[in-house]
């Protein structure tokens, strides 16, 4: 497969997953805002700050908007053309990459993506709020799910498909760490007794933002607890949005691409992925909590970045050897 094609498939997939996750992050925070007892500007601003930090650029945001309110943050993270990672930009870049590899993906994938893209044209915050922000974010999530489902059902599961998986799982793992990081305050320390009700609401919102609410309920029958939420989203082996699940899937796809057998590696990307996955498999939740949620998330993000770079160097841009 052409290196450029691998690169485009990878980014096509990352941008779609990114759009979905930004919708998730926005959605959970909007729920927090709605649950506030007092809607004071300062509190609302404080609530949005971690979201802006983890999904976009806070400085860029304040260049364009005076106040962090639901409307302005939604505008920035959903529609703003100057924000590289706004949802609409992500879908545009996703489609742009797909156009580059139009002949590699199935007609069904292209048509669905094209339809999704065309539907997002001419959108305004007003329209989003009128239909209900949660409805809109659900629409983005379903669009992504539909695209990923069509991809699985209609594209040959060969090398190109594996690059799509690689992009999807790196992005998902990265954004999941950001969801956890943005909610670090809720997750790090058990709430004092009086705040229990609020804490439960917030934890439930975090679970829902990862589509993990009912899956969590099935594993942990008891009430929702910080430690267990963290454990579930980070370390669960079977839940497809947990970080450990993502690193495992990443490991499998990378080795399928190179042909390396299990428990071995043939390049840096595989080595780094294997290492991260082992860390997640052998570190218990207590180790992570004692290390600190925020520090752990930073560390995972750093490792994911290194994996991304290693993939790029191995497959997408390599020094051309001189042939004889």
């Amino acid at each position: 497969m052409l290196s450029r094609v691998a690169d485009s498939l990878y980014w096509m997939s990352r941008y779609m997953e990114r759009a979905e996750n930004i919708a998730r992050i926005l959605d959970v925070n909007l729920q927090h805002v709605l649950d506030l007892p007092h809607r004071e500007a300062a509190i609302i601003r404080k609530l949005w700050a971690p979201v802006l930090r983890s999904t976009g650029d806070e400085t860029e945001f304040y260049k364009e908007y005076k106040e962090a309110s639901s409307e302005t943050v939604i505008d920035f993270l959903t529609l703003n053309e100057n924000n590289h990672n706004s949802i609409v930009n992500c879908i545009t870049f996703c489609r742009e990459n797909a156009r580059h590899v139009r002949e590699q993906i199935s007609d069904e994938m292209w048509e669905e993506l094209n339809r999704f893209y065309l539907n997002l044209q001419g959108l305004t915050v007003k329209k989003i709020l009128k239909q209900g922000a949660d409805e809109f974010f659900k629409h983005i999530r379903s669009g992504s799910h539909l695209f990923q489902g069509i991809t699985d059902a209609t594209m040959t599961h060969g090398e190109g498909w594996d690059f799509i998986q690689v992009g999807k799982y790196i992005e998902r793992a990265d954004k999941t760490t950001r969801i956890l990081d943005a909610n670090e305050e809720v997750l790090q320390s058990p709430a004092r007794n009086g705040d229990r009700a609020t804490a439960t609401l917030k934890l439930a919102a975090i679970l829902r933002s990862c589509s993990a609410h009912s899956a969590y309920r099935r594993v942990y029958v008891a009430q929702i607890e910080e430690r267990k939420v963290l454990e579930f989203i980070l370390l669960n082996q079977q839940f497809p949005r947990s970080i450990r699940f993502c690193t495992h899937a990443l490991d499998i796809s990378l080795r399928k691409i190179s042909g390396a057998t299990e428990e071995t590696y043939s390049n840096d990307a595989e080595k780094l992925t294997g290492r991260l996955h082992s860390e997640l498999s052998y570190n218990g939740i207590d180790d992570i909590i004692s290390h600190g949620v925020s520090a752990t998330m930073d560390n995972i993000q750093l490792q994911l970045n290194n994996i991304g770079e290693a993939i790029y160097r191995k497959y997408m841009y390599f020094e051309t050897p001189t042939t004889t």
Partner: peptide, 29 residues
């Protein structure tokens, strides 16, 4: 892209190709 798809051949851009020893190669994974 339509014609490449119909013929089942790669569609390449200039940057995908490199010339080494007077032969043309495409960069693949």
């Amino acid at each position: 892209s339509f014609l490449a798809r119909q013929m089942g051949i790669e569609i390449v851009e200039g940057r995908d190709l490199t010339v080494q020893g007077d032969r043309v190669y495409m960069r693949t994974t």
